[in-house]
């Protein structure tokens, strides 16, 4: 419990530091959202008036704490580009990215764990060689190209979905998922391949260790050795890897969202950056930081559960 509280407080501290760093770095960048939203034709006076109205002339500490206070209540300010609260924008965009993430993470885990184990179990066998060939191919293909192929095969040839016709969840949940599964596949394929490769090598490494020989000398069956003795050890490094993959997927994929015309966070971030819509950028950066920090926190907790050596 003490450990839990210690980790939790370091999590909060990290997020606070990220927010300070983020806020300061936006002060350093020339040009603010007042200038950006009024465009190049605006006079000095109108920009100044808007700065006053937006509270940009106040002391930097005052602005930081008022921003932080609002952010904690879920208020990230007004988007200059859309002229609506950032929180509403996020409420609209976040579910798309989250759904995409959940679907692709599910695919990654469901496919990679059994295949990685199978591949390691029969190292050098036919199934291992087939799986290794497929994973190498999948890792070599860039995501955008994979997206194009999926659109071509499933969209244009098999006609399982209409490319570009995104259907929102509120319109029709079934069709929404039917559409989302294809970008999810595009995201999942290369990451599944990496996870398989990682898990395979981890299991193979464990199988060569002395304690496996001890387990064999006791008269254990091979399957028991694999599932009871080896897997728990083999998963220790794989968990860190899967956590990195999950964090990456949750941050949103700019390319895949663009390619499948999904109104997710990735696309919103790109347009916000090019339009200097700083309140949106700040909110998304905080979101990504929070995702990474929370996932690391969870990984630490999981480690503590499965690896007794961490419990000191």
């Amino acid at each position: 419990m003490k450990y839990f509280i210690r980790k939790l407080s370091s999590l909060i501290l990290t997020l606070l530091l990220v927010s300070i760093f983020l806020f300061i770095s936006f002060q350093v960048i020339p040009g603010d959202s007042a200038a950006a939203s009024l465009g190049t034709s605006a006079t000095k006076e109108t920009v100044e008036a808007l700065r006053e109205e937006l509270g940009l002339n106040r002391n930097v500490f005052v602005r930081y704490f008022s921003w932080l206070g609002n952010a904690l209540c879920g208020d990230f300010g007004i988007s200059a580009q859309y002229n609506m609260p950032v929180s509403l924008l996020l409420k609209e965009r976040m579910p798309v990215t989250l759904w995409l993430a959940v679907l692709s993470i599910a695919l990654i885990i469901i496919i990679s764990i059994p295949l990685g184990i199978q591949s390691a179990k029969k190292e050098g066998g036919v199934s291992d060689r087939v799986i290794t060939f497929l994973t190498h191919t999948a890792m070599a293909v860039p995501p955008f190209f994979l997206g194009i192929i999926i659109t071509l095969v499933f969209g244009l040839i098999l006609k399982w979905f209409i490319p570009g016709r995104y259907i929102s969840y509120s319109e029709n949940p079934g069709q929404f998922l039917g559409y989302m599964i294809f970008p999810a596949i595009a995201i999942a394929i290369p990451k599944t391949a990496m996870t398989i490769k990682f898990l395979r090598s981890s299991v193979i490494r464990q199988l060569k260790l002395d304690y496996v020989r001890t387990a064999r000398s006791k008269g254990n069956q091979e399957n028991v050795i694999l599932y009871r003795h080896v897997l728990k050890n083999a998963f220790i490094p794989v968990i860190t890897f899967i956590a990195m993959v999950i964090a990456d997927v949750l941050a949103g994929s700019i390319i895949i969202e663009q390619l499948f015309s999904l109104p997710g966070m990735g696309r919103m971030l790109v347009t916000a950056i090019s339009n200097r819509d700083f309140s949106v950028v700040q909110a998304i950066v905080i979101y990504i930081a929070a995702v990474v920090v929370v996932i690391n926190f969870l990984v630490d907790i999981i480690y503590r559960c499965i690896d007794p050596r961490v419990r000191v």
């Binding site: 000398s217 008269g219 690896d307």
Partner: peptide, 24 residues
Amino acid sequence: FRKIKGNQISMIFQEPMTSLNPVM
């Protein structure tokens, strides 16, 4: 053979540091 291993013939190894499963 599996039923003999551990039961009728058993073995101890050189490296006590690595011969036991670290997570059990």
